[in-house]
Amino acid sequence: EVGHKEAVEKMPEKEFPRRPDLPSVTLLGTGGTIASRLDYRTGAVIPAFTPGELYGAVPELADICNLTTKKLFGVFSENMAKEQYVALAKAIGDEIADGADGIVIGHGTDTMGHTAAILSFMVQDSPVPIVLVGSQRSSDRPSSDAALNLIHSVRSAAYGDIAEVQICMFGPTSDRYGLLHRGTRCSKMHSSYRSTFRTVGDIPLAMVSRDKFTYLHRDYRRRDKGRQVKIDPVYDDRTTILYYYPGMSPDLVDALVEKRYRGIVIAGTGLGHVNKPLYPALERAVQAGVHVVMTVQTLWGYAQMYVYDTGRDLLELGIVPLDNMLPETALMKLSWVLAHTDDHAEVMRMMRTSISHEITGREPHNGYLIMQGGLPEIEEFILSHWK
Rank of each mutant, 00 (worst) to 15 (best):
P51V: 02
P250N: 10
L271Q: 00
S195V: 09
R210K: 13
D236T: 11
S209C: 06
I264P: 09
K333V: 12
A345K: 13
Q124C: 01
I378Q: 04
T360Q: 09
T50H: 00
W386M: 14
G272N: 02
L326S: 04
A87E: 14
S120T: 03
Q124E: 13
H190L: 01
L326F: 03
A255Y: 10
E283G: 08
R194P: 05
T115A: 14
C186A: 15
D145N: 08
D232A: 08
R137P: 06
Y368K: 15
Y261M: 15
I359E: 09
P204R: 07
R223Q: 03
G52K: 02
A81R: 15
H357F: 11
D39W: 00
R141L: 14
S187W: 08
S356W: 01
I264V: 15
R41Q: 13
T196Y: 10
P250G: 11
G108N: 00
D101Y: 07
F16K: 01
G183I: 06
H107P: 05
V86K: 08
L180H: 06
S77Y: 09
P17R: 04
T184E: 02
K259Y: 09
T68I: 04
R352D: 06
S36P: 04
E9T: 07
L72V: 02
V320P: 07
T353K: 12
E53I: 05
L54Q: 02
T33Q: 01
R37K: 14
E283W: 06
G301L: 01
P23G: 06
V292Q: 05
D323W: 12
A7F: 02
